[in-house]
Write a protein that binds this DNA or RNA. Structure first.
Lengths: 202, 202
DNA sequence: TTCAAAGCGGAATACACGCTCCGTCTGCGT
DNA sequence: ACGCAGACGGAGCGTGTATTCCGCTTTGAA
């Protein structure tokens, strides 16, 4: 590949991350091209269509996600689970507009995040055994927290970019072992449901 | 106003509630017109533009919201606050697509919901004094819960229409008085921030 | 019953966006 | 230096959607 072509591809990716991050994935391709100081034609030379460009960006984030799950193992004691949730919050709060689609997958991409989910489930179990998390919490409850944090990030980022931290703190408080608190009355999502949801949203 | 015109206006409103509720406010006006068994022209005779139609629907919901806050007063003891949160969850889960904009306002509409917010703040204080809610929770924390529940509703409704209940339960658990749980490390949104956010989202 | 005002339908318009096409330009192997 | 495969830009096409326009229909007061 020609040298300038390689450079341009990179510029487009960076620009797309910025533009989509700031204005959401609904931002027009024209804006991405302008931000990359490149014609739209060039964008389409490197990515067959808008979805492919978005996928490329999100793919990179998914890999970060898996890396984070790996890194969590080296956290002390039963803290790994909570550490991971905060890290994922960080990830979601950077260039948050891109990530509207982070938790959606075609069946094909499901594998990459399955890995993440498996590790997350293990960390959750560990945390429960360490007595830091209530035993009736399930991995699907954690998915709901991710969705919820994503939305709080989206809504608050322009005014209070750190507000999601408090929201997450409160949710973690909700996950603590029930003292005198009542047990949960509503059942968690089943895995099958969670899976269908993640496919449907996209 | 002519009799048939009155009827048609009503039909359009009902249809819009259904269509926007099911497919979100991005659903095309044509679909609304079809669902109302009416031409697009008629829709535009009654509402100057799409936004006005949406506003009308949301306005009605806001009034319901205020009514709920009033009704909460007749709930027993310190439970009024929690009861209200569940009711708001219900409200958000019905025709949820319409409500993407429920918490956004132009400065002008701020007044209508201010009333709601004032009552909510009082109920929160009551619940705190009754020892059911941690004393460091603020009304802006409750706003974040509303945003969060709205998103969980949006994501899960087609597969598990009741999933939001569990999510809310967990959040309420997070609002219980801290036993051995650590105090919150991150500050709540200020009122001014919350206000700006609600204006910016729209 | 009559008829003008009010209402209606839906084709046509305006516009925004994804994407394609093609004439022009440029890195780089020779 | 040369030539051209490969890359570039951006005008223009197709589509989808909000909104308008206008000839036809209906209502209801006289």
């Amino acid at each position: 590949m020609r040298q300038d072509a390689v450079q341009n591809r990179e510029r487009v990716l960076t620009a797309a991350e910025e533009v989509f991050g700031a204005h959401g994935v609904d931002a027009p391709m024209n804006e991405v091209a302008d931000a990359a100081r490149v014609g739209v034609g060039t964008v389409y030379r490197h990515f067959p269509n808008k979805q492919a460009l978005i996928d490329e960006i999100i793919g990179a984030r998914r890999r970060q996600l898996v890396a984070l799950a790996d890194a969590a193992d080296s956290q002390p004691g039963g803290m790994a689970f909570e550490w991971l949730l905060v890290q994922v919050g960080h990830l979601q709060s950077e260039q948050s507009g891109c990530l509207e689609r982070l938790w959606d997958h075609s069946e094909a991409e499901l594998a990459s995040l399955d890995d993440f989910r498996r590790r997350l489930a293990m960390l959750l179990t560990d945390a429960q055994q360490a007595g830091r998390i209530r035993t009736d919490a399930t991995p699907t409850d954690v998915s709901m927290i991710f969705w919820s944090v994503r939305e709080v990030v989206r809504v608050t980022r322009s005014v209070a970019p750190n507000a999601w931290r408090r929201h997450l703190e409160l949710q973690l408080a909700g996950l603590r072992p029930a003292g005198d608190a009542a047990p949960l009355n509503h059942p968690p999502l089943t895995d099958a449901q969670a899976r269908r949801i993640m496919r449907a949203t996209s």
